[in-house]
Design a protein around this nucleic acid. Structure first.
Lengths: 187, 187
DNA sequence: ACCTGAACACCGTTCAAGT
DNA sequence: ACCTGAACACCGTTCAAGT
């Protein structure tokens, strides 16, 4: 039961954060969802900052797992790169939610230090994965691939952000296609 | 004095929004900055939603003016497009602030309707301006240029978002360069 | 070990009241 | 016409108290 409460709190906080950002994490409504009083959350997490950090940390760990799976299932780096935007597309599919970390990137100035740390970690694992695929494609030296990887991550995260404001997943697809046509993303 | 109060409220709200987003607009601290009590703000604006909308509206109107000026001063569309990212760079220069509208794009789900309307207007005038320059460059038909314009706007807004999380304006420049190298932005 | 009730300072908002 | 004080329901957080 205690481990269940902790899990339930994390899950409810994650959903809230994906919809409304860090500031959308509300202890009273999380308590209601979980079936405990808001004060009880403090038994499991010392503060909203630590709860937010735990949510963000689990989020990038999950994403790292997905990236690994794509790499494993899709040995060809070109195919892997074609699948990459699907990670961001999936959040939009599931109720127009934003990838947690690009979301919190906007709130960044406002965020407690432990949360910031996990947001940066999310970007880092994405860029590292992209750079590894670009190197496999022999698209340049390590430095060049790193730069290009940062550009791809940034552009795809931006596409998710913009598509969300129109609640239009077709716009996300169109933007990714445009990146491919323009040559930012290998085809 | 009364017109001054309204102006001072708008200015204080804009600064707050660029730093902390819509949720960072705080009536009590705006009141302190302006030198009135928070209840007095309601004499000038009927709600936080309407104040936020007024801030966003003025922001895209100002941006439209800057875009017009660039077009006027820089007849060559290629040069105009090279100057475009400077709009987003300037906010970062001025205290690591975010372009208001890409900022609020992240909070979008949470935003009152009148604010949403102005955020979408900001994106629209940017895309329209970019598309006009691409057409002048004869880079394709109207539809193609519109698509490419959306991709450029999205990628540059994303670059600002990511650069901000690292408080690194050099990263913004690097991302824009990468877009140029990749062929997304004409050089 | 896990949860609660009551209190704290803070927020947007309202409203009757002041000049 | 413009502003204020006091109150409202809401928030994160604390803490003594319950089982």
């Amino acid at each position: 039961m205690s481990e269940n409460a902790r899990e339930a709190i994390l899950e409810a906080a994650k959903i809230a954060a994906q919809h409304f950002g860090y500031s959308g994490i509300n202890f009273r409504s999380i308590g209601e969802t979980v079936g405990i009083k808001n004060a009880s959350i403090y038994y499991h997490f010392p503060s909203k900052a630590e709860l937010g950090a735990a949510v963000a940390k689990r989020y990038w760990e999950d994403t790292a797992g997905v990236l690994e799976a794509i790499h494993r299932e899709t040995p060809d780096p070109r195919d892997s790169l074609r699948r990459y935007p699907s990670i961001f597309r999936t959040s939009l599919e599931n109720g127009n939610r934003l990838c947690l970390s690009s979301f919190m990137a906007a709130e960044y100035q406002d965020l407690p230090e432990p949360v910031k740390k996990e947001i940066v970690a999310f970007a880092d694992i994405n860029v590292a994965w992209l750079a590894a695929r670009l190197i496999e494609l022999e698209l340049g030296d390590a430095e060049t691939c790193q730069r290009r990887a940062r550009a791809i991550y940034t552009a795809v995260a931006g596409a998710q952000l913009i598509a969300r404001t129109r609640a239009d997943i077709g716009l996300f697809d169109e933007l990714v296609e445009s990146y491919q046509e323009a040559g930012l993303l290998p085809v």
